[in-house]
Amino acid sequence: MQALSIVELEQRFQAKVDAEIKIEPKDWMPDTYRHTLIRQISQHAHSEIVGMLPEGNWITRAPSLRRKLILLAKVQDEAGHGLYLYSAAETLGIDRETLVQELLSGKAKYSSIFNYPTLTWADIGAIGWLVDGAAIMNQVALCRCSYGLYARAMDRICKEESFHQRQGYEIMLVLAQGTPEQRQMAQDALNRWWWPSLMMFGPKDADSPHSQQSMKWKIKRVSNDELRQRFVDITVPQAEYLGLTVPDPELRLDTNTGRYHYGEIDWTEFKEIIKGNGPCNRQRMRTRQKAYTDGEWVREAAMAHSQKRALKMNPTQAT
């Protein structure tokens, strides 16, 4: 087989993507495609891992055994999501240790939403309903991503996510139908989580410079603004059913399009959090770093144990 030039390889690659043929780890791919994917998948993985912290905070304080079991299962799922995604990123030629170090050093980003505190039990409801709801909106679109491993990880994750959103909505429902104080708690949680949830879809299309290339490569299938709009359209009626008010005075249904018009997002707040100045950024990083250092001896001991066992089973291989 004669060697192909970069241009020819790129054309072949794009033709495959256009024909909806999935790209697999050992296939040729442009360097920027590889790096864009590593960045996106690892950020996604970090978000799942850091995302366990705001909810983990409430496991011991869940109001009943039933809620405790549910929350434990949900947080465990998020750990699983992080692991599927780290594995997918690793197939692109980066190792796990590097990925973990990038998170711990603050070099890698994770979703801004996890830098807000969980002040009351209603926040656990709001997170499941809104944050997982927004994540699902995003992830369903990613199931059609051109990189096979990312798409398959998303497929698996989406199947698991739907219980996350439903348990959250159920918490909100119970509170919304409860005492006036409980109602107030639910409303307060919606007030605090609504705007950060809309920010989860990222900057507006006009301010999202890399989006176009990602769309061409089918890493991204639906634009930020379109996903955000879809989220608003399905979530507002759900809030109405709860009898709660979405904290946006500009929110109204456009009867011509059947879609909701919503107010302007506070992008300065978004940028500050990305920069590391959100309410919980430092706390989250400290918790992750502590977990890593505290776990060091476990990782070492497990490895030493396996080496010792291997030696026992095959003493001739001793070095």
Binding site: L83, Y84, S87, R96, R299, A302, H305, R309
Partner: peptide, 11 residues
């Protein structure tokens, strides 16, 4: 179905 890291086969 996918991959993972572990110290040995049992883990």
């Amino acid at each position: 179905v996918g991959s993972l890291h572990a110290a040995d086969a049992k883990m």
